[in-house]
């Protein structure tokens, strides 16, 4: 089968100064964006669900860096970071959070349901685990069209216990579909720790009985994510079938906005923030290489703050959807 494009494996040491500065900027944008979303939620401008990505930024940024045009991304409900990584407009994402007509789904989807076919972002899904079957279907379409693209399918340690995940693993391996499964193991499915929910806590081993290779990755290290991601993508793109990456990560905030925080200690959260933070870690790498000085950090800070302030202002002032929108996009007209 003719494959249009090839993945290139990226060694961890091969990242340029430009790459690392971009990763730093992208992760910082996610962090500041999510902090502002939390603030808007507190002000009542965002309602319903709002699952923040703070702490997990290295995964979306590192994985995005190895994708090629036409590759697809699909994830669950903790999706804001992935949308920003895919290049969706922060204004449209924030305005969708506030339910406004300027939102990426015109105010009809909310936090968990945003999409951009142009950017290869297929949602944003609120049923835990459903995106794994859907994403495997995206991979099936890639194989059917022989377009050389890979589907990157994200799910959490909670979704890893859903039955359809394994139904999908089986078919993906059986048919050698071009799919990379990325488990964002942040250790807690809502309030249930992985030790309390999973008989096999090493989730990269979950593909063993389907003959799917898997590896554990430090999901707090963007360069490690990029390196492992490039290896997995090359495997899938070259016709060898699915690959599982278990990203060990941590969510700093609650599951959603009303989280009692009784299931883990404040000390545990503080310890991760202090010792494993993905943004601080990358800053140490940049400092050690002498690739950024205070002025450079300040410039990135300023740019990110301006983007987030602009997005928040847009999300606050974009009009509410017309009530008539309730009746649109339910059916498409059939051509006769």
């Amino acid at each position: 089968m003719a494959r249009a494009r090839k993945s290139v494996e990226v060694a961890k040491t091969a990242n340029s100064q430009k790459d690392l500065l971009k990763f730093y900027r992208d992760m910082l944008l996610m962090r500041r964006f999510e902090e502002r979303a939390g603030q808007l939620y507190g002000m009542g401008l965002i309602g319903g669900f709002c699952h923040l990505y703070i702490g997990q930024e290295a995964i979306a940024v590192g994985m995005q860096s190895i994708q090629i045009k036409g590759d697809q991304i699909i994830t669950g409900y903790r999706d804001h970071g992935h949308m920003l990584a895919a290049g969706m407009d922060p204004r449209e994402v924030m305005a969708e959070l506030t339910g406004r007509s300027g939102g990426s789904s015109r105010g009809k989807g909310g936090s968990m349901h945003m999409f951009s076919i142009e950017r290869g972002f297929f949602g944003g899904h609120g049923i835990v685990g459903a995106q794994v079957s859907l994403g495997t279907g995206l991979a099936l379409a890639n194989q059917y069209k022989a377009n050389g693209n890979v589907a990157f399918v994200y799910f959490g340690d909670g979704a890893a216990n859903q039955g359809q995940v394994y139904e999908s693993f089986n078919m993906a391996s059986l048919w050698k579909l071009p799919v990379v499964y990325v488990v964002e193991n942040n250790q807690y499915a809502m309030g249930t720790s992985i030790e309390r929910s999973s008989s096999e806590t090493h989730l990269h081993r979950r593909g063993v009985s389907f003959n799917i290779p898997g590896e554990e990755v430090d999901g707090m290290d963007v360069e490690a994510v990029r390196e492992a991601g490039s290896r997995a993508a090359a495997h899938a793109r070259d016709g060898h079938g699915p690959y599982i990456l278990e990203m060990k990560t941590y969510r700093y905030r609650g599951h959603s906005m009303s989280d009692p925080a009784k299931y883990r200690t404040k000390e545990e959260v503080d310890e991760v923030k202090k010792t494993r933070d993905p943004i601080d870690h990358l800053r140490e790498v940049l400092d050690a290489k002498g690739w950024a000085d205070e002025a450079a950090y300040k410039a990135i800070d300023g740019e990110v703050k301006a983007i987030v302030a602009d997005a928040a202002e847009f999300a606050r002032t974009s009009p509410e959807p017309d009530p008539a929108e309730l009746y649109t996009d339910v059916y498409l007209e059939a051509a006769q």
Partner: peptide
Amino acid sequence: HGFAGLGVGSAMAG
């Protein structure tokens, strides 16, 4: 459950 989901996903991809 699995193949219905694969079907829908492939439909989303055209």
